[in-house]
Each structure stands twice: as C-alpha cells, then as structure tokens.
C-alpha cells in the first residue's frame, strides 16, 4: 500500500504554512486519518504541509473562563493534560476513548475534527460543550461554533486555504457532572454510538443538560429534545429513561454492516441513559 507520490514541506512558521496552503497544498497533522486514506489512494494530495512541528499550534492553556487547545495537541496531550482533566474533564475522558495508545500519541484534535468522520469521538463532547473552533487563513481568522463547524460527513466549515488554529472549550462549573459513553466498533475503535453528557443541578433539580451524539447520523448533533425533557426534573430513573428515548428523535440514523439503523437507535437510547446516570452521579 504505497501512496501516490507527493511533495512534502515542514514549514518553520505558521505564515509559511498558510502561504503554501493558499496555493492548494494539503495540511498534514498526526496523519492518523489522512495517511490511511492516502495508502488506499482515496486521497492523493500533490503537496503535504506538515503542521506537527509548528510550536505555535501545539499548546493547551487556560485563559479566562475557557481552555484553549492548539490544533496539533495530540489526543494523548488532551487525555493527560492537567488543565483539561481539571477544567474540562469531559474532553479528557473522551480523548481516552479515541483509537488506541499509538493513535492517541500521533493524532491531533485539529486533524480529527477537520476530517470530521461521523463516527469520531471528539464531536460528541465538543457538541455537548458548545465549543468554538478558530479557523485561520493566510489573511483571515474567524471563530465558529461547532454546531456550524460540523456540516456533514467529512465536511466542515473550513474554506480552502484555512486551517484550524485552536479549539475553545468552556471551563466546567464546579458541580457539573459529565460522562462519555460509547459502543466501539471492535476492530477500528470508532464509535457505533457515542454519547457525551453534561448536567448541572441547582436546588435538587436539573438546571442544565447538554447531550452530544456521534456515530448515529451523518454528522454529530445535540439532542435538544432530550435536553429539554430533563430541565427542572430531579433525575429519577423514569425521567432519565424518558429523556434518553428522545435522543434519536427526528434523526436520519445511519445503517451499515456493523449496526442497522434500528439497532443504532436502540443503542443510542441505552447509552444516553447510561451517560446521563453516570453524569448525574458525578454532579454535586
């Protein structure tokens, strides 16, 4: 499995990289999705620009009420960062589910979400976190919400010549409980269904519930009907079950050789209930 020939540049600066990308080169980060596609000749870029060596894309830092994660922070970095574990535990928990240790050592958050596989893990958490993505071009920089960023299967809001600069997630309020529950396809590790949940109670009632879903449809989404059903509830087993049953409502569910649409829908309800219970147990 030899990819088609290509030119390779490891630029010294972000500006140099953006200049090359503006001319049509393809960015390479960890390569955990792109290189397998190139080996299968599903992708055949003429020119790869290696972003992995750019120091100014590789960081994780707390800034105000948010955690800023540079595009080339690896899944291992996110999984083990004291900042992410402490301030945004849902994202660290989710990162630990991606692929395997070798993949997490190389794969990056920017590369993963730019690829936008509909079964990837991060989108579930980023939807639940209402995260933002900063997109940088040679002459532009803009910030978009993940709801707008994840457009469709393998399709994002990135324009030609743009790269992801960073992902911004909110610092979690103390007392918020979070959980990511996933049914992994055993060979690839991709999510057949992945549910990320954040819940916060006040005065014994659920004041905030966010549910991000991956693996189910052509793109990740927030299960708004299920979230709404939880508001003001104490979180009894019946209430959780009722909310979970809405997680795939009005969703066109994927069907493939790993799971039929009906089975996926069933799994989504079961795993939404599990994620809600785990998150509620962790909430104050």
């Amino acid at each position: 499995m030899i990819p088609q020939a290509f030119d390779y540049t490891a630029p010294k600066s972000l500006d140099e990289a953006l200049g090359l990308l503006a001319k049509g080169a393809k960015p390479l980060a960890g390569g955990m999705s792109l290189i397998p596609m190139m080996k299968l000749r599903l992708a055949a870029p003429d020119h790869l620009v290696d972003l992995r060596r750019l120091k100014d894309l590789n960081y994780i830092r707390e800034q105000g009420a948010a955690v800023h994660i540079g595009a080339t922070a690896t899944h291992y970095d996110v999984e083990n960062s004291a900042v992410v574990r402490g301030k945004c535990p849902l994202l660290a928990e989710t990162a630990a589910h991606i692929g395997d240790v070798q993949v997490r050592n190389m794969g990056t958050i920017g590369g993963s979400i730019a690829h936008n596989d509909p079964s990837a893990d991060y989108p579930a958490a980023l939807q639940a976190l209402e995260a933002k993505v900063v997109l940088k071009g040679a002459k532009s920089e803009r910030t978009v919400s993940v709801a707008d960023f994840f457009v469709d299967t393998f399709t994002t809001a990135l324009e030609p010549g743009e790269i992801i600069r960073e992902v911004i997630v909110p610092v979690e309020d103390s007392g918020t409980g979070t959980s990511y529950q996933k049914v992994a396809q055993p060979a690839s590790g991709f999510a057949i269904v992945g549910i990320a949940v954040r819940v916060r109670k006040s005065g014994g009632k659920i004041g905030m519930a966010r549910i991000g879903v991956t693996g189910l449809a052509n793109r990740s989404y927030r299960a708004a009907a299920a979230e709404k059903a939880l508001e003001g509830k104490a979180g009894s087993a019946t209430e959780i079950q009722n909310a979970a049953s809405l997680v795939a409502e009005r969703v066109d569910v994927n069907s493939d050789l790993h799971a039929s649409a009906d089975y996926r829908r069933h799994l989504a309800v079961v795993y939404a209930a599990r994620a809600l219970m785990a998150a509620l147990a962790r909430s104050a």
Partner: peptide, 15 residues
C-alpha cells in the same frame, strides 16, 4: 518516536 509508541506503517519517514 521521541519516546512515544507509534505505528510506523502510518507515518512517512520524512516525518
């Protein structure tokens, strides 16, 4: 690779 386990079939030598 620099202390981290990687799959060398999914990486180019130039990297």
């Amino acid at each position: 690779l620099n202390g981290k386990a990687v799959k060398s079939c999914t990486m180019f030598a130039v990297q």
